[in-house]
């Protein structure tokens, strides 16, 4: 469903993601855990390009959301002026591509053939960003409901503006979703009148109103009072039961144990370890994973 290929992300000189790759398959529930500052949010936000990766590619099914990273395509690199020079000098094409990729020389003056090959590849494989985002719902730590709109308008704005639904259809869908989370009576309220738990449940169904193929959650319960966490997690659990593909950054270890099909542990900008929840929680291999689980599980 989502393929992250060798992405890196720098904020200035700080390398927040270092050559991270992962594949999210249809129906998977992937939970990302790890210490603060390890790059979990950044990885998640790179998946729908709220952060633009510094290098690498992100794919949604068979289409690319980023533009092509030439270093991931030896066949394109061979079109570059530098590669042609190396081959003319007697180097084999595979070795020439490898050499350039290794040296990351590809910046400028690589010739028309290379530019044409690159833009042809992009034209053939990229999907418009806004279209890709329609298929990827996102839920934020701080809810981010539209403060100037009623709950109903929060739910119907995007489907109607993007002409996916008529106003009446969008409203019907919104009512159905509100009923599902038991907040039908809040349809005409403004977000400021809702509790945190209610806001986050609305934020989840706002994303669902777009009928996405995958849902991304960035610490959806971290800003909530403890007694409100349960209601949000139960909506997420029911979503998982329906077969939604989910990627969840969270500190809720019970959710990870019970719902995840795969757990990724991030540290220092890389995925240090991944596996089934059983494996990660009972038999962590990486010392950082052990240390992290020790500190969070003993806190509970």
């Amino acid at each position: 469903m989502i393929s992250v290929k060798s992405i890196s992300k720098n904020f200035g000189d700080v390398k927040v993601l270092k050559n991270v790759s992962c594949d999210i398959k249809k129906g998977e529930k992937v939970v990302i855990i790890g210490p603060s500052g390890s790059g979990k949010s950044t990885l998640l936000r790179c998946m729908n390009l709220l952060e633009k990766p510094t290098g690498g590619e992100v794919w949604l099914e068979d289409k690319m959301i980023t533009s092509a990273d030439p270093y991931l395509h030896p066949e394109l690199v061979l079109e570059s002026a530098t590669a042609k020079k190396l081959i003319a000098a007697g180097m084999e094409s595979g070795a020439a591509a490898d050499k350039i990729i290794a040296e990351k020389l590809l910046k400028k003056n690589e010739g028309r053939a290379f530019a044409a090959a690159l833009s042809a590849y992009n034209a053939q494989n990229t999907i418009p960003l806004n279209l890709a985002r329609q298929k990827m719902g996102m839920v934020f730590q701080h809810f981010n409901l539209f403060n100037n709109l009623t709950i109903m308008d929060n739910l119907t704005l995007a489907p109607v503006e993007l002409k996916l639904k008529t106003k009446a259809e969008a409203k019907e869908k919104a009512e159905e979703l509100l009923e599902r989370i038991g907040l039908t009576d809040k349809a005409n309220e403004y977000p400021s009148r809702l509790s945190g738990g209610q806001k986050q449940r609305i934020a989840i169904i706002r994303a669902l109103a777009m009928e996405p193929e995958v849902m991304l959650f960035d610490e959806p319960t971290s800003a909530l009072d403890p007694e409100l966490v349960g209601e949000v997690l139960s909506v997420m659990r029911s979503l998982a039961d329906e077969g939604m593909t989910m990627v969840v950054v969270t500190h809720e270890m019970n959710f990870a144990k019970n719902v995840a099909t795969r757990v990724m542990f991030m540290a220092d900008g890389v995925i240090a370890e991944e596996g089934t929840p059983e494996q990660i929680f009972t038999d962590p291999r990486h010392p950082r994973t052990r240390q992290f689980l020790h500190s969070v599980l003993n806190k509970d």
Binding site: L50, H142, N144, F146, L157, A158, E161, L162, M210
Partner: peptide, 15 residues
Amino acid sequence: VDIGQTEAGRSLGLS
């Protein structure tokens, strides 16, 4: 205006 408002809009696919 909180940047989160823009991010929420863009994450839904709005221009």
